[in-house]
């Protein structure tokens, strides 16, 4: 009973905060609302005994939203990030698509005859997850690791101000590049 009450409270917070992301006046508030939604979902995972996944969801998303807030202030400037804004296009069409998607998903959730529960949870799910990743589910680990490494490299390449071709042109053997801006004491 208590679990049900907690779940519904968290569910209402998660959805309300999710709606608030696109309703509130400023982008900074939208970031906080998204963080609240993620925290509510992370706490819901704890109700399903997913301690490790729930905690990393909360920790990761809070940090991510902090970075997102910095990005918004960086790109939009301090004032636009905190001032009222309404930058949408084809809002009615998007709303129709969203409502239609919810109707289809909700219909499936309510009317599909889901099978009954099979299997039991282990005693320590965090240890079990680690053992699964290092044992029978090693393929997931092998796939995820290079993907994350490739993501780091790709993100740095994309975000770097210039590559060596930008700096040196076609002559990559030059020892030093032409300064992008005048440098030194006599500039």
């Amino acid at each position: 009973m208590l679990t049900d009450i907690v779940f519904w409270v968290l569910a209402v917070i998660a959805v309300a905060a999710g709606v608030a992301v696109f309703v509130v006046d400023s982008m900074a508030r939208a970031t906080y609302a998204l963080a609240a939604s993620f925290v509510a979902v992370g706490l819901s995972l704890l109700l399903m005994n997913l301690e490790f996944i729930g905690v990393i969801t909360v920790l990761m998303m809070v940090m991510e939203m902090a970075i997102m807030a910095i990005y918004m202030i960086m790109f939009m400037g301090m004032n636009p990030a905190l001032m009222p804004m309404n930058m949408v296009h084809s809002a009615k069409g998007a709303l129709s698509v969203a409502v239609g998607t919810f109707a289809v998903l909700a219909t499936g959730a309510l009317f599909i005859p889901w099978p009954s529960r099979r299997g039991v949870t282990g005693t320590d799910l965090t240890v079990a997850l680690g053992e699964a990743l290092m044992g029978p589910k090693m393929l997931v680990m092998i796939t995820v690791s290079p993907v994350l490494f490739a993501t780091i490299v790709a993100a740095i390449v994309l975000a770097a101000p210039s590559g060596r071709y930008d700096r040196l042109g076609d002559d990559l053997r030059r020892r030093s590049a032409t300064a992008r801006r005048p440098e030194g004491v006599q500039r």
């Binding site: 569910a11 998660a14 959805v15 999710g18 709606v19 992301v21 696109f22 939604s37 979902v41 819901s44 998007a94 709303l95 698509v97 969203a98 409502v99 998607t101 919810f102 998903l105 909700a106 959730a109 309510l110």
Partner: peptide
Amino acid sequence: LVAAALFSVGLY
């Protein structure tokens, strides 16, 4: 249902 609501809001 809650997951569908979150997904739909995000889609919007």
